[in-house]
Amino acid sequence: MPQMTIVQAINDALRTEMRRDPTVIVMGEDVGVNGGVFRATENLIKEFGPDRSIDTPLAESGIVGTAIGMALNGLKPVAEIQFDGFMPPAFDHIISHAARIRWRTRGRYYVPLVVRAPYSGGIRSPEHHAESPEAYYAHTPGLKVVIPSNPYDAKGLLLAAIRDPDPVIYLEPKRLYRAFRQEVPEGDYLVPLGKAHSAREGSDVTLIAWGAMMPAALSAAEKIASQDISVEVIDLRTLIPLDSETVLESVKKTGRLVILHEAPKTCGFGSELAALVNDRAFEHLKAPIVRVTGPDTTIPLARLEDYYLPDVGRCVLGIQRVLSY
């Protein structure tokens, strides 16, 4: 089996699906000739030509707005927004249209659209290039939100996202794009949306993370294992629809929950996980839920970035806190 990085796995997923289904197209800024600023669409223009690997003008509202029109008229666009920080100009089309069309037309029209965006921090990027905006989309009914954390999942989830009949926001942890390689099967396979992955079994504490926080979560679990503490690590993979079963089962078992995310804390997705557990597993809780998150500030530039992003140490502290109760 070939070894791939996440960005190669994404490229492979796009190629696989474009070969299989002639209605799949990719579009966005610099995705054609240049192969995408991160090379996620590398060589697609060679194989599929400029009609299916489209260099668009520089306009995010235009990209998502026209992609919606294409999806209405029989294509399956995979639109790339070049960086997380440039999703806001497309916000209107994502939440006022893509998210609503099936509902407002009573199923007469729907939008099989994937909006891909390199996501979150850790690569020393300029401003507006390190955002974690998943909560905006998780709060919007009608969208699915998917965030892979490894090459295998990245490919399988992206294939599932493209085949999904509803709009999917597919956020790619750019810090992990080339961080490591993994065996990725050739050809077609799916990782179903809406299913979390139990990345490590444990019994004392449940630790939930996604995207680029997964390596920190796993390291923290490993580190604290030496103190005889058994941490169950769940990689959510899909935020919406949320795999509440996996989450609740684990919390009922451990009675303790730590949530790890990069986004600002207030109204972040961690709040929903905490509320879910409050609703359904309240009596199982042995300690207040701990959220280890980015602070409620804008993410700083390179020299302070490491202090903003939750790391292994903060994660270990969170685990200790939930245990000390």
Binding site: T66, I68, M70, H93, S96
Partner: peptide
């Protein structure tokens, strides 16, 4: 939402052209 449909129409026409 005013003017948003202009882009949808471009997308639909574009899809027709591609197809």
């Amino acid at each position: 939402p005013i003017a948003t449909q202009t882009l949808h129409a471009v997308g639909a026409a574009w899809a027709a052209k591609i197809k």
